[in-house]
Write a protein that binds this DNA or RNA. Sequence first.
DNA 1: TGCTTGACAGAAG
DNA 2: CCTTCTGCCAAGC
Length: 112
Amino acid sequence: MKDYPDKMTPEEARIFRDDVLNIVGQIPHGKVTTYGTIAALVGWPSHSRMVGRTLRYTPGAEQYPCHRVVNKEGRTAPGWLLHRHLLEQEGVQFKANGYVDMTRYYWEPSID
DNA sequence: TGCTTGACAGAAG
DNA sequence: CCTTCTGCCAAGC
């Protein structure tokens, strides 16, 4: 018995999407978290890429602060130029190399 | 059915 | 620091 199925059923995909958006909505102003952190928290540790896919393609995701999600190194999404700009508007400062300073802005989601 | 594509992660050079 | 590779896995074609 595996801890996790090999593939998501449509039902699981729906729950995954809802859980991801729920967590993103909880990220405080001026803070960031990572794709992998979210994936692990919703129960699919190896689906970090699915988190990114969800935020990019799910209609309505714009209503959530999805710009507060960066990769684990603090890099912004390639191809999404506004990403860095939106974070800077919230006071998030970038390091000289263009990465978010994760030691200062990383936020660990809680389940409650 | 099989190969390619990423809003990722981690490691290597 | 930056590029590239491998592992990952659903989606597209």
